[in-house]
Design a protein around this nucleic acid. Structure first.
Ligand SMILES: [Mn+2]
Ligand SMILES: [Mn+2]
Ligand SMILES: [Zn+2]
Ligand SMILES: [Zn+2]
Lengths: 144, 144
DNA sequence: TTGAAATTGATAAACTGTCTCAAAATGATA
DNA sequence: TATCATTTTGAGACAGTTTATCAATTTCAA
């Protein structure tokens, strides 16, 4: 429990070192809470952390989650109207299936789709930097 | 010029009729301006219409563009941080290539990708209702 | 023509996220 | 370990975008 998330903490420390940033109690706290999640909003992190740390500011949550993005531990994703931070510390690129009824999010990878995207881009003279693919619908549980 | 967009006006009128809504000067005005665009923000429509109609309210623009969405003439799309209304009166489903440098938007359709999406969804027990695929990068002009 | 119902415009409010700044914490250095 | 320049924090102000409110106006079915 105490020395969990060692690898991710190392990644963060390296990023901090490279950018003359400091390791703070808040950053450690937020990192540990964040790594227990897969996809979470800043607001949700705020409420969750408020239980044990009522004075942690919302601005600090935003700043810190954005820092995690810079460090490569997180990725901000806009699902519908919500912005969720995706815990990518242990995953590579992936896209999402989202149940519009229960908000369940399933991750998937499909190299065939990725390849076709490149093909479409090339055909139009584009060089892809990033892309976003989200499939919205009903999961098997919610369909019934 | 006067009787342009007759078909779309008909679609709107049918929607209004079905929902006991009324045809107003503003709705006609906004429809004609909107149909001349492909992808436009509410704010941009507001400024464009302000030239000829300085007292048209921004709220009316939003309300009316959302009405067009209900009528199937428009679709709200969140590109990056902007919300653009896509003029779909004369198009079927399509996805987008977006140049992050000059904001150019290219539309494309790829039935192979669509098919693979269904496959992915089925494999995960999902039934897709909608999806979003956006490829962000540089167009040929901006790459140089 | 009338009048109930819908719509409008102005603006307040909601919502999400960033900025400001004084006070506190960090960590490199002596 | 003490010093102290630099970074970070928390609180709230602020900004951008979209919706809600409401009195006045417009629409349209009767
Ligand atoms: Mn994910
Ligand atoms: Mn389009
Ligand atoms: Zn579900
Ligand atoms: Zn371009």
């Amino acid at each position: 429990m105490a020395n969990k998330h060692v690898k991710e903490m190392q990644v963060l420390k390296e990023h901090l070192g490279k950018h003359q940033l400091k390791l703070t109690r808040q950053r450690e706290l937020i990192l540990n809470a964040f790594l227990r999640q897969e996809h979470i909003t800043a607001e949700a992190m705020y409420h969750q952390l408020a239980k044990s740390d009522p004075h942690l500011g919302l601005a600090t949550i935003y700043r810190t989650l954005n820092l995690f993005c810079d460090a490569g531990l997180a990725q901000a994703r806009h699902f519908g109207s919500q912005t969720k931070y995706d815990n990518v510390s242990h995953k590579g690129h992936h896209d999402h299936l989202i149940c519009t009824s229960c908000d369940q999010i399933v991750e998937f990878e499909n190299e065939e789709i990725e390849r076709l995207q490149e093909e479409v881009a090339a055909r139009n003279g584009f060089t892809i930097k990033t892309h976003r693919l989200e499939l919205y619908g009903l999961c098997s549980r919610c369909r019934h």
